[in-house]
């Protein structure tokens, strides 16, 4: 049984970071509800190319919700209306026949638009470079089972580690804060004995870098948690704050 719908798309077009953007409207007919949102965008782009026009530019790669590359702000929500999915996992069955769908890029001071729906998330890499690691070289490492780690701790670290670095948390936040992203990495490593050693210093360095790059402050609106496709919990922010305080006290 294949269902199809007709939709109107209002898509943000912007040539470059400094140029003025605008909405362009397209009508799409007979869109199968089994299609993913990005496949629907492919249909649009094939149409545009057939008309000799440039396609709508957007980021995507794995198309299975893990690389964190796709990043569309759909009908007022990062990654659209469905729960716990990325844009690429969103399916057209979530939309109604005749619906108008608004598609915008992430909007945040930390993520300048490159073109259309594609933004520059380099800032996340820079925050990671500031301290998002355990300082070990390759080789000369003790046996992996040398330090047992209680399963609940390992599981909690895994939950924090499931962040895909998509930036939806920043896009969802009225302050443009990157706290959920930063706290996920800080938490993951602080929970594990291997990362514990540098935990306080790591928190301090990553937060300083985040501030420097123009991300806003966290005022606990919880919008990030609600929109995170991977359910990263804001309890991680509390843990980050603890590590951060530790670092301050040591100073």
């Amino acid at each position: 049984m294949e269902n199809t719908i007709n939709i109107t798309l209002k898509v943000w077009r912007q040539r470059g970071p400094k140029e003025k953007g605008f909405f362009e409207t397209f009508d799409l007919k007979n869109i199968s509800t089994d299609m993913s949102f990005l496949e629907m965008m492919d249909v649009l782009n094939e149409q545009l190319v057939a008309e000799g026009k440039e396609p709508v530019v957007f980021d995507h790669d794995c198309r299975e919700g893990i690389c964190g590359m796709c990043s569309m702000f759909i009908n007022g929500h990062p990654h659209g209306p469905d729960e716990d999915v990325t844009t690429c996992q969103l399916h057209m069955r979530k939309f109604k026949d005749g619906e108008t769908i608004t598609v915008e890029p992430w909007r945040s001071a930390g993520f300048p638009v490159i073109r259309d729906l594609m933004v520059d998330r380099n800032a996340f890499d820079k925050i990671m470079q500031a301290g998002g690691y355990v300082s070990v070289n390759t080789g000369g490492i003790p046996d992996a089972n040398a330090i047992p780690i209680p399963k609940p701790i390992a599981d909690e670290a895994m939950d924090a580690a499931s962040c895909i670095g998509c930036g939806a948390c920043v896009a969802a936040c009225k302050n443009g804060s990157a706290m959920l992203f930063v706290s996920a990495k800080v938490s993951q490593l602080a929970l594990l004995p291997q990362g514990k050693v540098e935990a306080a210093a790591r928190a301090k360095k990553m937060v300083a870098k985040m501030d420097e790059l123009g991300f806003g402050n966290c005022t606990n609106t919880r919008a990030c948690e609600a929109e995170c496709p991977k359910n990263v919990s804001i309890t991680n922010i509390a843990r980050l704050n603890r590590e951060f305080l530790c670092a301050k006290i040591k100073d």
Binding site: V134, V136, T138, P142, D143, P148, K151, D155, A157, Q194
Partner: peptide, 17 residues
């Protein structure tokens, strides 16, 4: 060994291994 040292959260048993 390398991955565990980097903080890769591999699945563990209840005994911690």
């Amino acid at each position: 060994d390398q991955c565990v040292a980097q903080g890769v959260p591999f699945a563990r048993e209840y005994g911690g291994l």
